[in-house]
Amino acid sequence: MDSVTDIRKPENIVYRKPALLTDNIMHYCPGCSHGTVHKIIAEVIEEMGIQDRTIGISPVGCSVFAYNYIDIDWQEAAHGRAPALATAAKRLNPDKYVFTYQGDGDLASIGTAEIIHACSRGENIVVVFINNGIYGMTGGQMAPTTLLGMKTSTTPYGRDAKLNGFPLKITEMLAALDGTAFITRQAVHTAAAVRKTKNAIRKGFEYSMKDIGLSFIEVVSTCNSGWKLSPVEANKWMTEHMFEKYPLGDIKDVLK
């Protein structure tokens, strides 16, 4: 039987931090899904060997500092305007892989017009959409994607459809547009879910070079600080409540 020190050798490594992630300690709260999604994007870029040909567009929100963590070229967009910047980057550099990384406050609220028209134009970009049903950065206010009855700092008695409207299922909306090629909804709460999300992101990057339209990967995530739960409880709450409104799976794939 090998002892632990015998096993801890470089040749036995099966999983380690991707080299593309910088050594900066992430500013995200403990257990935040952003870190996991950053990691799998870094893994996909590393595995595809496209570090010098990838341009990321970071949003406004908690992930505004995404450029500090993944060692590729980045641009920082005004609130909600990442798809517009990505359009420019991709049209001027058709040989580059361009992706945006946006939260629900950025993409589904202030940036709704931008994403709808980018999808409608069929831009060859990848959009990674983090949906945690809350504005995490500014203190947990209600977002368009907040579930009915969900308590946030601006809906302390729970979201009421009469007063606050219904949750916006923007992913299904975008699937109806002709310019989109691949639309999927995934999560990162278990190892299996993380691998599925990683495959979806890889597929999105591959599709963005096939000139068939926009790839949109929604990741249903947690905001444990905003939800006032521990990271593990937040994952449990997400599987019990979020997946009911936002079911996981591929919604559209034009090459299937």
Binding site: V4, I13, V14, Y15, R16, V188
Partner: peptide, 26 residues
């Protein structure tokens, strides 16, 4: 404890990428 089988589930879900996993066949 030493029950670890090196499945890397922990490292896959780790948001801060702090876990390195080693595995050998026995």
């Amino acid at each position: 404890n030493d029950a670890c089988i090196g499945c890397a589930s922990c490292a896959t879900v780790c948001p801060d990428s702090v876990i390195t996993v080693y595995r050998v066949k026995i």
